[in-house]
């Protein structure tokens, strides 16, 4: 099978080509990496990814994320926006295999070419984002108005998602245990919007919203970043979906209006590249390049010079 993917056809949103492009960036053979670099460079040159809104959705299992994601997709489609979805599921630590995209509950129109859903296994690391996720987001960003990255909120993926998304939506359910977990886990600094799903649970949901708001306010004060919106939703009845969409867009609009988007994306890219570097070359590789700070600085320089993710990684690679 040919490794060459026609970037023009990807940009024209040809579903089969988009699918092949993602398979290519997942492909770990050396010859595939060369082809992937070429493709990503072509997509990057098109400049199309600049306007794309990348939304990360995460949260503990069982909170109704899939239903909420379906509702968000429908909302964007109703507003005429195209949506690419990347759903990352954990790999089995035992076999390396994975059960992907429990999409039994995401109803999509199979004839709608403006929606594309791809699932991906997280790979070796427990709960982390897939190695190829960043590159896949690059592909989808060049093609769709909105790219949604969904991860099961366990372990590393909750923090990884920040590296590939412009806006992070956290989904929790009102059971107080969840909210407490969320606060204790020290991840209050990641989300830009929080959805308390299953708001049909009534009083419990109202209390959860209040608890979260105060916790997030403290977190925001300490870190000096904008205080996240907390919204009650019920994905099954559609309550609060419009508000979530508006909050996600408001967050992105503010970043864009402030002129910070290119800088923010560069920083995120560098952080993600540093994670990939560590995954690929291990502690020894990082040490050889003078420690993680030096690696990150080197990667940042490469990315700032216009290198794609894979190119940056290749040029900073330690001696074999």
């Amino acid at each position: 099978m040919s490794l060459v993917v026609d970037s023009e056809r990807v940009l024209a949103r040809d579903p089969a080509s988009v699918a092949r492009a993602i398979s290519l960036v997942e492909d770990r053979r050396p010859e595939a990496e060369a082809a992937a670099i070429e493709l990503l460079r072509a997509l990057s040159r098109s400049g199309r990814g600049a306007a794309c809104h990348r939304v990360g959705v995460t949260g503990p299992p069982g909170v109704g994320k899939s239903t909420l994601v379906s509702a968000l997709i429908r909302g964007w489609r109703a507003r005429g926006r195209s949506v690419g979805v990347l759903a990352v599921d954990p790999s089995s630590p035992r076999s390396g295999g994975a059960l992907l995209g429990d999409r039994a509950r995401i109803e999509l129109d199979p004839d709608d070419r403006e929606v594309f859903v791809r699932s991906m296994a997280s790979g070796g690391q427990l709960g982390g984002l897939a190695r190829a996720a960043g590159a896949a987001v690059e592909v989808l960003s060049a093609v769709f108005d909105v790219v949604l990255i969904e991860t099961v909120g366990v372990g590393q993926s909750e923090t990884d998602i920040e590296h590939v998304a412009d806006t992070v939506l956290f989904v929790v359910q009102p059971a107080s245990g969840d909210v407490l977990q969320f606060i204790k886990a020290g991840i209050v600094e990641i989300p830009d919007v929080v959805a308390v799903n299953k708001a049909d649970l009534g009083a419990v949901a109202v209390r959860a919203v209040a608890e979260l708001e105060s916790a997030l306010r403290l977190g925001a004060e300490a870190s000096g970043r904008a205080e996240p919106r907390v919204l009650a939703t019920s994905a099954s009845t559609g309550v609060g979906i419009g508000e979530v969409l508006a909050a996600l867009e408001a967050h992105f609009a503010a970043v864009v209006a402030g002129g910070q988007l290119p800088a923010v994306r560069r920083a995120k890219n560098a952080a993600w590249a540093t994670r990939l570097f560590a995954l690929r070359y291990g502690e020894r590789g990082v040490d050889q390049r003078g420690g993680s700070r030096a690696v990150r600085a080197a990667l940042e320089r490469e990315l700032a010079g216009g290198a794609t993710l894979f190119e940056a990684l290749a040029s900073v690679a330690p001696e074999p």
């Binding site: 076999s95 295999g97 994975a98 995209g101 999409r103 039994a104």
Partner: peptide, 19 residues
């Protein structure tokens, strides 16, 4: 298939040929 190391996509029952 998962336990043998495959990546498996399973979407449940009653899916149309087109889907």
């Amino acid at each position: 298939a998962r336990d043998a190391g495959f990546e498996v996509v399973y979407e449940g029952i009653r899916v149309t040929p087109r889907e």
